[in-house]
């Protein structure tokens, strides 16, 4: 019996999500009194996971797994799952992990529950809470299987240190040939992606045109944030599609979401509602977004944002 997490790495380093999965996995392990095991692929520093409560760290180091491949990764993780006789497999909600969740559930014959945002509310039978209807509702799901794959929403549990003595083992994995070949990748920029960002700065039609986006970008730079936009902004070609957030765009689950010149239409809110803190800057005090926000400033973005940037620069220089 064990709880297994897939601890994702990027260029050898654990992603923040991996540490959150370890913390979450630890709490389930404690409750069902089983071991917490992690599988990590090409990690430079696997021991880091012992700080977050992982008892056994299984390392697969293989140059052929340097780039993500859905088939190889699914094979590798499901092998470990079966070998470790795991009952739980916990995945993050990164694009790569979401890609393989469904595949893994068939390979391991486990139930699959995605978008989970809290610890199980019950173990026998297992009940989990998840976001559904694009953040318009919470759903409690009962698992009808003795094995389950959970994909955990980002930032829903947090990172909790819990140092244990862990065993680090390395496993070999033989790559089977497959015909999904990644021929090239295009990185959008060196900035953080919306999926990985703690802070997202987002602009809407209130910014009037693409030539004004430097104020969004400058604010994002000071905060180390990713930039995003509302749907009409990307539809008009002011910004790339990859920045469109909302019900039909990317979901945002950051710690802080700053919405500038965005009215707060239901489809926009649905996609960003699971962000923890929302700040709205809008000229119209009746903009619907104020109803969903934590902090609001009624004001003109072209005046407020540049001033905010200057003040944040000062704040950052004093606090770093």
């Amino acid at each position: 019996m064990s709880v297994l997490i897939f601890a994702e790495t990027e260029r050898g380093k654990f992603k923040k999500d991996a540490l959150e999965l370890a913390s979450y996995g630890r709490s389930i392990s404690d409750e069902i009194k089983s071991k917490l095991v992690a599988i990590c692929i090409n990690s430079n520093n696997p021991e880091e996971l012992s700080k977050y409560g992982v008892d056994k760290i299984i390392c697969v180091n293989n140059n052929d797994l340097e780039n993500f491949n859905s088939k190889n990764f699914s094979d590798c993780i499901s092998n470990v799952f079966l070998k470790e006789k795991s009952q739980f497999l916990i995945l993050s909600s990164s694009s790569n992990s979401r890609y393989i969740g469904g595949i893994l559930s068939i390979y391991t014959k486990a139930a699959y529950v995605s978008n989970v945002f809290s610890k199980p509310t019950k173990y026998k039978p297992l009940q989990l809470r998840r976001n559904s209807f694009t953040n318009k509702a919470y759903e409690t799901v009962e698992v009808i299987s003795d094995k389950v794959i959970i994909s955990l929403c980002r930032n829903s549990y947090g990172i909790i240190e819990n140092k244990v003595k862990s065993e680090v083992v390395s496993e070999t994995f033989k790559i089977a040939n497959n015909d999904i070949l990644v021929s090239s990748t295009e990185k959008l920029s060196d900035k953080v992606s919306i999926a990985d960002a703690d802070i997202v700065v987002s602009g809407g039609r209130g910014l009037k045109g693409p030539e004004n986006w430097h104020i969004i970008e400058n604010l994002a730079d000071v905060l180390g944030a990713a930039t995003a936009c509302s749907k009409p902004v990307s539809d008009s070609g002011w910004r790339p599609h990859s920045e469109h957030v909302g019900q039909t765009g990317k979901p945002v689950a950051s710690n802080l979401y700053i919405a500038i010149g965005i009215s707060g239409a239901i489809q926009h809110l649905a996609g960003i509602n699971s962000s923890k803190i929302k700040v709205v800057i809008n000229t119209d005090p009746d903009a619907p977004f104020f109803k969903s926000a934590d902090y609001g400033i009624v004001g003109d973005a072209f005046e407020v944002v540049p001033e905010l940037i200057e003040k944040l620069k000062k704040f950052k220089s004093l606090n770093n």
Partner: peptide, 9 residues
């Protein structure tokens, strides 16, 4: 589409 970019496959 992947997090932070695109892959050609």
């Amino acid at each position: 589409e992947c997090d932070g970019g695109k892959e050609n496959i």
